[in-house]
Amino acid sequence: MTRPRRRITILLACCSTRALRITRRQAGAAAALGLAGPARAVEEVRSPRPLAYRILKGDPPLMQPYEQRAAPKLLKSLADGADAVLLGVKRNDPEDYALAADLASKFASAAKRPVAVGLDAMPLGSQLRDAASWPSVSDSVDFLQPIADLQQRTRCDLVPLGVQAEVMGAVQRSGGIAALSEQQRNAYVDDVGAFVRYPKQTAAFDVWAERVVARTYKKRYEGLEGAPKYEDYFASSILYDEAVASLAARYCRAHPSTLLVCVVSDDHVKFGCSAQGRFQRLEKNPDGDAGFFRAPSILLNPSAESTGSLSRSLRLALAVDPAKARTCSDCVWFSRSPPPSLLTHMMNPVDGAAFKIDLGLSMPTV
């Protein structure tokens, strides 16, 4: 075991589980102790362009920038009435996970409620101390250090949202979801009927499958000997989405006053037809009043390539057809100033200044 892995393993072994509640005094104390590592990923003070952008639906969609002092307003608007927030990250990317930990802290302050962190990298039944053996961890576990620091500092709940390796392997190698036992399926599928109906009830599903799932399959497996068949890979992908949605729903039902911040691979967040859409069609209380979960999404440090754009700018809409024109996410957020070429269809920034009322007493300009 290398020294970095030993360091994080020792740290993760100390983790416990309580919901996160951050006060201004605690945040200041953490910064004084040098524990606010995730915040170092944010460079807005030196950024010539805002880091946070709301994506507004339209033809075409618009990007609404939020300057630094307006960012808390954006976070509060996302958290108000939400059961969870999905943060789309690149798999095992240290910068994305640092930004995710930073935003989780800021959501706690903006929402004024406990916050828990869900990880799709963490398989069901595992703990953070086991990170070196997670199937999604290909090399070092250092990318998880900001999450470990956050958990140690705040004692927030860490919620596993991932599928165990043997289950995913069975789906990819043994004929899709039909290869699972009823017990295995029920561990990850909260509502079997809704799971089956979802593709037919989602107008953009076919376009999303072609432009997200099939595209990732070609990049990862095309020409690779021993690769799973596309049909089985597709089955494993939608099981992954359903697991994130179902496991998040179970936690939210058990902890209705807590905001669950889900750190999820961006393929399972972008364009809303994967984990986000599946979560938002699950009932909050199947035995009570009608109502579904609300879970806005934020893509962290997206690139033109990661959104499937054919230009240097972000792709904001999945398709031209209004019925299938899902936006890439509700917001995008960057660790550092994004290049101008990445931004498109921009609006004037929200600067966070106090609203002023002109009663007609000001002098007219000449």
Rank of each mutant, 00 (worst) to 15 (best):
V269N: 01
G34D: 02
D191V: 09
V171T: 09
G125V: 14
P135T: 06
S174E: 15
F355H: 04
L316R: 04
Y240E: 10
T258C: 07
K106Y: 00
Q145I: 13
D191W: 11
V89D: 02
E242L: 01
D96L: 08
A214G: 03
E210K: 13
D139M: 03
A98Q: 13
G226I: 11
C273F: 12
P349L: 15
G291Y: 14
V332Y: 03
A29G: 04
D149S: 12
A235C: 11
R326Y: 04
L119K: 15
S311C: 02
P286E: 10
A82R: 01
L282W: 09
A304T: 05
L342T: 06
L33E: 07
A31M: 11
S140P: 02
S138T: 11
D266K: 15
S47T: 08
V45A: 13
S138Q: 10
F271R: 03
A19W: 03
S329N: 01
K356P: 00
C156E: 02
A275R: 05
D232V: 11
A71D: 05
G37F: 08
F355V: 09
P146R: 08
V332N: 02
A254E: 12
L78H: 01
A209N: 08
V261E: 02
K112W: 06
R312M: 10
Y188W: 15
P38L: 09
L103V: 07
S274K: 05
A71S: 04
A19K: 07
L318W: 11
G272M: 02
H268Y: 15
R21W: 11
P48Y: 15
A41N: 04
R7Q: 14
V167M: 05
Q151I: 09
S181Y: 06
S309G: 01
W333E: 03
K270Y: 02
R6K: 05
Q64G: 06
A254I: 00
L342F: 09
R155K: 06
G226V: 12
G169S: 12
E222M: 13
A204V: 01
P364T: 13
G81I: 11
P61M: 13
R49A: 09
G291P: 04
S297R: 08
M346Q: 02
T216D: 12
S133F: 05
D83M: 07
A27K: 07
K356S: 13
Q201V: 00
K90I: 00
P94Q: 12
A131Y: 00
G58R: 13
S309M: 04
G162S: 14
A325M: 11
T17Y: 14
A39M: 05
E305F: 09
G308K: 07
R326F: 00
V332H: 05
D241F: 12
G81Q: 08
P50L: 15
L78Q: 04
R91H: 15
R312N: 07
V42E: 06
A121P: 00
S297A: 13
